[in-house]
Design a protein around this nucleic acid. Structure first.
Lengths: 171, 171
DNA sequence: ACGTTCATGTAATCAGTTACATGATTTT
DNA sequence: AAAATCATGTAACTGATTACATGAACGT
């Protein structure tokens, strides 16, 4: 159950409303741990009941701001320190490649080349983010940059691989 | 809904029982699309009802062997040809890195070095698989090898990245 | 006889997605 | 006055995990 810890982590940075948090899930966290609106609001309710977060203020339009509590921070640190060994990756694109042999060679290469192009675009987006964001030299920003760097490196090798795979399976 | 297509893909290769398929999900598909026992048997039932697969034989100990039907193969090819654009990656380890700033520098490096070591072991396992399997030169095997190659390349860069990140965040 | 592997299923629960619903405030 | 954005919530459903449960056949 990691949505819980994603929320705690974001709230450890600064208090925020469900709406604020949602924006994070659609931007910085989109490639790491995406979440939907309904899920975020529901989880915030549960965390508040558990006492891991608490309402720190309210604003216009029913805005409710939550902050992390001491117990919440302890829970977050505990989760970080104890690796649960969960390594469940799921990749739709990769699953398709596994079964690409059922298609004619031309279609195989087409699929993989399309995938490569997509990854190229993603890299451009990541590079733009890296270069156009003005990063502070706080630890928070350092961590975010390190994660972004992973996105960049990983989409680069995946693109290379997809192009290579298109060659392998296209003939 | 991709478990459906994972099953169709495996059955396109050859008829198999739920038990047989489960072994595939725990080996070759473990890093691409893992699935649990209860899920596999339930989905097989649904696919049979839909007419995408059918019982091709029975054996000792209630063994029920399914084979893909013409409709099933059409559905598989259709799914392969039309990319649904779903790109939801979720990575627990990466999520942790995002929040590593809440821990002292030593603990950050420890986490990332541990992650790197894990990826090194995974690479060894992948290399063993690549070298010790006797691959035929069928299209089926070519696809499987291409996917395995992805696992190898991707765990290699991730390992490098994790070691680099340990340096970045450890001081 | 005994342990292991083969083989399937069900029930409860948890996590995630889609769709619907509402209304206040700010901007143009 | 209208449109856009802010802001939260609920209900129905689908997908995935955990745990329980059973029993036949095979190897030693």
């Amino acid at each position: 159950v990691s949505l819980k810890h994603a929320l705690l982590g974001l709230l450890a940075e600064s208090p925020a409303s469900g709406y604020d948090l949602l924006k994070r899930f659609n931007t910085s966290l989109a490639f790491v741990w995406p979440a939907k609106q309904s899920q975020v609001y529901a989880e915030l309710g549960r965390l508040a009941e558990e006492g891991l977060i608490s309402v720190t203020g309210t604003g216009a339009r029913n805005r409710t701001e939550y902050g992390i509590t001491a117990e919440g921070l302890a829970e977050l640190r505990h989760w970080l320190a104890t690796d649960d060994g969960e390594r469940t990756y799921r990749s739709g694109p990769l699953l398709r490649v596994f079964f690409l042999w059922t298609l004619p060679p031309a279609a195989r290469a087409e699929y993989l080349d399309g995938f490569a192009r997509e990854l190229e675009e993603r890299q451009i987006e990541f590079r733009r983010l890296r270069d156009e964001t003005d990063w502070g030299d706080t630890d928070i920003d350092k961590c975010a940059r390190v994660v972004l760097e992973f996105g960049l490196r990983s989409s680069a090798v995946t693109e290379e691989w997809a192009s290579w795979a298109a060659q392998q399976l296209g003939a």
